[in-house]
């Protein structure tokens, strides 16, 4: 028992810089899954708009993913007591490691923006034909979604479009969650099917009310 405690302490000391100490395996895994979905959206958006802020965020998320992967591995090992534990945890780690692999791939993809090659004339027009298209959208004053929470509106459920990032004045909000509020003047980067985008655009421009969308 004593030995075990000292190992835990060592691990803690060695990795003080990691901020997720108190985060449970469940929370870590949820974050990793969400990040694995967000990071590919951000990577494609960075390429389509040739935006270095978005590309930097991809790099940032990738390094967070590495930290989370490390921590989830440690926590899993420490919690395995029986063969059955170990089997179930191996499945969990396989999923976590897949999420981490995706973030690696996304980072490599935005790497082409730093390779001094002509991305602009080659990729954006291809990606604009994808099933799930990436657009920017400005929320105007007259829009009734301004001042409301993304989760309360359930935008993805009703339009099939997800908000990847919000540009508010000089600031970015990446991967906004249900508690994020939309404000007039926001420029949002969205990803999703055409029909839903057109509808959301009408709402953002104040030509359609949100109630008309959800009814």
């Amino acid at each position: 028992m004593k030995r075990k405690r000292s190992i835990e302490k060592e691990i803690e000391e060695e990795h003080e810089e990691i901020k997720y100490e108190d985060t449970s395996v469940r929370e870590l895994l949820t974050m990793m899954k969400d990040y694995s979905e967000l990071i590919t959206d951000l990577a494609y958006a960075a390429i389509v708009f040739e935006n270095t802020d978005l590309a930097d965020e991809v790099g940032h998320i990738e390094s967070e993913m590495d930290k989370m992967m490390y921590l989830i591995r440690l926590k899993s090992m420490l919690s395995a007591r029986t063969l059955e534990d170990a089997e179930r945890l191996s499945g969990l780690l396989q999923v976590a490691s897949a999420a981490e692999k995706i973030s690696d791939a996304a980072e490599d993809m935005v790497g082409i923006l730093n390779m001094d090659v002509d991305v602009r004339s080659i990729l954006p027009h291809i990606l604009k034909e994808a099933d799930e298209k990436i657009h920017t959208l400005k929320i105007l004053n007259d829009s009734d979604i301004a001042g409301r929470l993304i989760g309360e509106l359930r935008i993805e459920s009703f339009t099939g479009v997800r908000i990847v990032a919000i540009r508010r004045r000089n600031r970015w909000i990446y991967g906004p969650n249900g508690h994020s509020e939309l404000a007039s003047g926001d420029i949002i980067i969205v990803c999703g099917v055409d029909a839903g985008f057109e509808e959301l655009k009408e709402v953002a421009h104040g030509r359609l009310s949100w109630n008309e969308v959800i009814s």
Binding site: A105, I112, I122
Partner: peptide, 26 residues
């Protein structure tokens, strides 16, 4: 440029697909 970009992006996508396979494998 064109060849490099296509190969880089295709490689990244292939790895994403591979990760999906890892998840399904569980």
């Amino acid at each position: 440029d064109r060849a490099l970009i296509f190969m880089k992006v295709a490689d990244a996508i292939e790895r994403i697909a591979d990760a999906a396979l890892d998840i399904a494998d569980v």
